[in-house]
Design a protein around this nucleic acid. Structure first.
Length: 1061
RNA sequence: GGGUGAUUAGCUCAGUGGUAGAGCGCUUCGUUCACAUCGAAGAUGUCAGCGGUUCAAAUCCGUUAUCACCCA
């Protein structure tokens, strides 16, 4: 059946995908013919996600590398899989549960909820995997991995050992002292009620306010406040009984621990070390806080004095740590002001004693203090759209202002305030008494000083709510201790990051690395393998008291606290891979015979580990209750082990031996820190080997104008719609062509359409071959035919050249250059010239040789294009000849340089140059396209004459020449064409406009002369001849000589034309 | 504020020292049998500005401007 006019991608793609799967074509090691391995780890997409343009781009590049290596016989593995994506998946599942009216997460409890998320995972997983297959991704799908496979609650079909790897690494790092638990300020997401990493926070500039308040000095003290200008002249001097501070978050004032000023700030020098009053809360219990010095406040910003709220601001936290200032937590997990603990009066008194230095508290005691005034407890930190009443921030501002402790400034004239502003101007001629009584026309009104200004606010990248810095207990990786090998591996080139700028960014981040908070207060994820038990420090002393209590019967007399005073409890903490191991470890820390019991459903809440408990059974045996840390690990902790975990580690699998360390990681530069740097640190910490040798970083795919694609802008391009419309090959070729190192990725559908046309072009070249019997009896040949015709020898040479260029480009990850080279070869050489040359050749003596050559050349087009455009090339491969294997498992060619025949290459360059020149002259002189003309040859040298003779048929056909004749001179009224080695002319007396021909020649000559002037100038500069490279000088001389020859021809032609005018 | 990068044809981008290219778009012509998702021809640039290094700069260095992204 003859070929259709175009390739039907929609029909062919699923069929070809099925064929590849059926042949198991992408299995690890398929088409292996050498020992070198090549392994790519897919950046695991979120299991509940859908394919977007970034994935399409990223996976196209991985697939090109994978297919190229597989065809070259490497032992190749492209490892696929998905990520459990803790917060995102939990969010997606909860959203769907809400939409379906299912019970909420808290209602169903942790265990049931986890089962529900697993269902969601199983349901969604196929979506993105199927979409990757539509793109043509040649992953070994039989090895599909998941970052939570093998977790204790995983359902059937979700076996695997990724969980083992994650837990083993946690335990190992814990045992090495590289993981610790501590109270730290973290980014808290009040929506998801979990800590998140600083990388998951987006700082966005929002309109905000800066309030200015007075903190009165304790005991009514006063000082001289003096402001000076740059020259030291006093510009303001007044006596103040307060210090003025500016804040964008008034609600956090309740937790202030100090006011800080810069040590060099002379304005406040008199009051440093004194106490001032937080101007909010019940008057009788106002807290006093010290005025301290620290380098952090900027004297030129605001008043130069900064309130320090260590528990709710990262900068303040650092100041508090330096100055040993207590950090008072004000909010609960949802961002509401706390309602727990003792009443305000009691808490404030304790805080007061601390501020005066009369008392010290432990971290836990400080955390238990609730310094929120009773009337503000339970309010949200600030008014949200859904709140219909003022919340904490608004109430605090209101209270301070009411008390007259807001800094006041003259009212700006544009703000009308009824009762204070002047009334309407009196009518002309009216008497002064006509003014409205009670309105002050000239009095200066004062208003609270509130600056409206843009402020940077942190938002959760998933929840989109304002992140609250919060002091909480979290787990951390002590990254500073494991960062050095990761830095060294890139410094010494063991791992290379391209483009190189990525290395700079990598160094910069790792050299300033912060501890990594790895605990999340979520349910979906790897639960932290740490168990706690609270037990007496001295069991015997405790037993005595407990037995005494038992002998008393059940009646408590209210004196327990005193009776047990002096008896200490200890919280034991063990880290282990399994629960039974944990219990064994705990047992060793306790007296023999102690019974350990899992106290309660250990999947419930974070508070559990604080409860603990122990007692004595009737038998007299000790019972100690054990709980497991309820937190889960940051998703990036598990994906940080992706290279090891997917290859079966901690088991020593054959795959681990063969493919680790892996070859290349292709990923977006936006997750260099999230993932790449952490993988480096973790694999090095765990197995002392880098995870990959090369990291290829690319940018974000943007729209044609360079804007980020976003749903709200409506400029999202869906890769699946593109595949439907243009075919996967067109999208893939576009992706490859965009992939210049460090380039911006602007995706334009016009460009995709252009490359779809390219696939059609290739298709039709093969169709032309079919019509001319090229494929009859054709079978794959690795060596080119032994051709004699120059055109055939030439295209074989061009094919070899293209192969070498594509190999060189791909070796350097220049996907754009590989694509460009292939485009130019297939369209610009094969279709534009070779197919045209073949037409006359098919009618002559070299017909058989030409058929063989064309078959070989087109086979190589398919092979070389296959990594970029797998579908159409596979389809052509199947339909055009007898093949031993699908194209995807066909060997990549290895063609020696010797197949490039230099004389043929030179000759065809000359022929195509001549044809171009004739066509150009004809078109510019309006010679009718259909008119066949005579071509005169004047003064040709031997080379030119021979080339012309050998290729007369091609030239005649493509330049539309009737006959070729030799002549002594160019006749009058002819077109003159200058060529290397002689002159050509087309006699057209009467057909052409002499003036127009003169203008054409003059224009050509002028351009030529300009170039020649430059060449002459360079050659006449002795310094150029002396310092430039020999080849450059030679090349310049050659250009000049050739240009001068051409100029002479043109001048002669112009002289002849002059005779006619 | 710190870091990284960009600025080349109308648009989107290549081009790491030898006098500027591609695709798309545009203009003119053309359906002769692979392809109109096509063919032939053509026009288009102070390579962001300024200064420097060099025989030679889009390319290297400095600086300014504008833009983008990342981190504070």
């Amino acid at each position: 059946m003859p070929m259709e006019k175009t390739f039907n991608a929609a029909e062919a793609e699923p069929r070809i995908t099925a064929m590849w799967e059926e042949k198991n074509a992408f299995a690890a090691g398929a088409n292996k013919s050498r020992d070198d391995s090549f392994c790519v780890m897919i950046p695991p997409p979120n299991v509940t996600g859908a394919l977007h343009m970034g994935h399409a781009f990223n996976n196209t590049l991985q697939d090109i590398l994978t297919r190229w290596h597989r065809m070259r016989g490497f032992d190749t593995l492209w490892q696929p899989g998905t990520d459990h994506a803790g917060i995102a998946t939990q969010m997606v599942t909860e959203r769907e549960m809400a939409a379906k009216g299912e019970p909420s997460r808290r209602e169903m409890g942790r265990e049931a909820f986890l089962e529900r998320v697993w269902q969601q995972k199983i349901k969604s997983r196929g979506t993105i995997i199927g979409q990757l297959k539509r793109l043509g991704a040649s992953c070994d799908w039989s090895r599909e991995a998941f970052t939570m496979s093998g977790a204790p609650n995983a359902p059937e079909g979700e076996e695997g050992n990724f969980h083992d790897a994650v837990i083993k690494v946690f335990v190992d790092l814990y045992n090495k002292g590289l993981i610790y638990r501590g109270k730290r300020l973290v980014n808290w997401d009040p929506h998801f009620e979990t800590a998140i990493s600083d990388l998951e926070v987006e700082n966005i500039e929002m309109p905000g306010h800066m309030w200015h308040f007075k903190y009165p000095l304790a005991g009514g003290e006063t000082y001289d406040y003096v402001e000076k200008d740059a020259e030291g002249n006093v510009t303001l001097r007044e006596t103040r009984d307060y210090i003025s501070i500016a804040t964008t978050r008034p609600e956090t004032m309740l937790g202030d621990g100090a006011v800080a000023v810069h040590p060099s700030d002379e304005r406040y020098a008199p009051i440093v070390g004194k106490l001032c009053e937080i101007p909010v809360g019940p008057k009788e219990h106002r807290r006093l806080i010290p005025i301290i010095t620290d380098e952090y406040p900027d004297p030129s910003f605001g008043s130069g004095a900064v309130k320090i709220t260590g528990a709710h601001d990262f900068n303040d936290y650092a100041v508090a740590k330096r100055g040993n200032i207590p950090c008072y937590r004000l909010m609960d997990t949802q961002g509401n002001l706390r309602t727990d603990g003792a009443p305000y009066a009691e808490s404030a008194m304790i805080a007061q004693e601390v501020a005066r230095g009369e008392r010290t508290l432990t971290e836990a005691e400080i955390d238990a203090l609730n310094l929120v005034p009773d009337d503000l407890r339970g309010l949200h930190r600030f008014k949200r759209p859904e709140d219909n009443k003022p919340q904490a921030r608004e109430r605090v501002v209101e209270q301070i202002t009411a008390e007259g402790l807001a800094v006041m400034i003259p009212a700006p004239p544009t703000t009308p305030r009824p009762g204070l502003d002047p009334g309407p101007l009196a009518e002309p001629g009216a008497a002064a008494s006509d003014e409205v009584p009670g309105q002050a026309r000239d009095g200066v009104a004062m208003v609270p000083y509130v600056e409206a200004k843009p402020i940077m606010q942190p938002f959760g990248d998933r929840s989109k709510v304002v992140i609250e810095p919060m002091l909480t207990d979290q787990w951390f990786v002590d990254t500073a201790k494991i960062v050095e090998p990761a830095l060294e591996a890139v410094r010494n080139g063991t791992t290379k990051i391209i483009p190189e700028s990525g290395e700079k960014v990598y160094f910069h981040w790792l050299e300033n690395i912060e501890p990594w908070c790895i605990s999340r207060q979520l349910w979906w994820g790897h639960q932290i393998p740490v168990w706690y038990a609270t037990a007496p420090e001295d069991f015997d002393a405790y037993r005595e008291k407990l037995e005494w209590v038992r002998n008393q019967g059940s009646a408590y007399d209210g004196k327990e606290p005193e009776r047990f005073a002096g008896l200490k409890v200890v919280r034991h903490e063990v880290c282990a891979s399994t629960e039974s191991e944990a219990l064994k470890k705990l047992a060793r820390k306790l007296p023999a015979g102690t019974k350990l019991k899992l106290a309660y459903n250990n999947l419930v809440s974070r508070e559990n580990d604080e409860l603990g408990g122990f007692g004595i059974e009737n038998t007299g045996a000790w019972v100690v209750f054990v709980s497991r840390d309820p937190d889960v690990l940051d998703t990036w902790f598990s994906s940080g082990l992706w290279p090891l975990g997917t290859l079966g580690w901690p088991e020593q699998t054959p795959e681990l031996q063969r493919y680790f360390p892996t070859s290349v990681l292709v990923t977006g530069q936006d997750i260099l820190f999230f993932w790449v740097a952490r993988m480096m640190m973790m694999q090095l910490a765990v197995v002392d080997q880098v995870p990959f040798h090369t990291v290829y970083l690319h940018g974000l795919v943007r729209d044609a104008k360079g804007k980020k694609m976003s749903k709200s802008l409506g400029n999202v391009i869906d890769p699946l719609e593109i595949i439907d419309e243009y075919g996967a090959d067109a999208l893939r070729f576009t992706n490859a062509a965009m992939a210049s190192l460090g380039g911006v990725l602007k995706l334009d559908t016009a460009r995709i359409a252009g490359y779809r046309n390219f696939t059609t072009k290739l298709w039709n070249a093969c169709r032309f071959a079919e019509m001319n019997g090229v494929w009859e009896g054709h079978s794959t040949q690795s060596a080119p035919p032994d051709a004699t015709a120059t055109a055939n020898r030439w295209i074989i040479g061009e094919t070899v050249r293209t192969l070498h260029e594509v190999d060189a480009a791909l070796a350097e990850y220049r996907f754009d250059q590989a694509a460009d080279t292939l485009y130019k070869f297939v369209w610009g050489k094969v279709c534009d010239w070779y197919v045209e040359f073949a037409k006359p050749l098919f009618d002559g003596d070299s017909a058989a040789e030409t058929r063989a050559t064309m078959g070989w050349v087109l086979d190589h087009c398919m092979i070389l294009l296959h990594p970029i455009m797998p579908f159409i090339t596979e389809e052509l491969w199947e339909t055009t000849g007898k093949r031993v294997a699908p194209l995807t498992l066909t060997d990549w060619p290895n063609l020696p340089e010797t197949l490039i025949d230099a004389p043929s290459m030179r000759e065809m360059t000359w022929v195509t140059g001549l044809i171009d020149a004739i066509r150009s002259a004809r078109a510019q002189m309006h010679v009718p396209a259909g008119l066949k003309v005579t071509l005169l040859r004047i003064g040709l040298d031997d080379t030119a004459r021979a080339a012309c003779d050998r290729n007369a048929g091609l030239i005649a056909r493509l330049a539309r020449i009737e006959t070729v004749t030799d002549a002594e001179t160019v006749p009058k009224g002819a077109l003159t064409i200058a060529a290397e080695g002689g002159t050509f002319a087309i006699p057209l007396e009467g057909l052409i406009d002499i003036a127009e021909e003169k203008a054409r020649l003059e224009k050509t000559l002028a351009k030529l002369e300009k170039d020649l002037a430059g060449l002459r100038a360079r050659l006449s500069n002795p310094k150029f001849v002396a310092s430039a490279k020999e080849e450059v000088v030679e090349e310049t001389r050659g250009k000049l000589a050739q240009g001068e020859e051409e100029a002479a021809t043109l001048s002669a032609a112009l002289a002849r034309l002059a005779e006619l005018l």
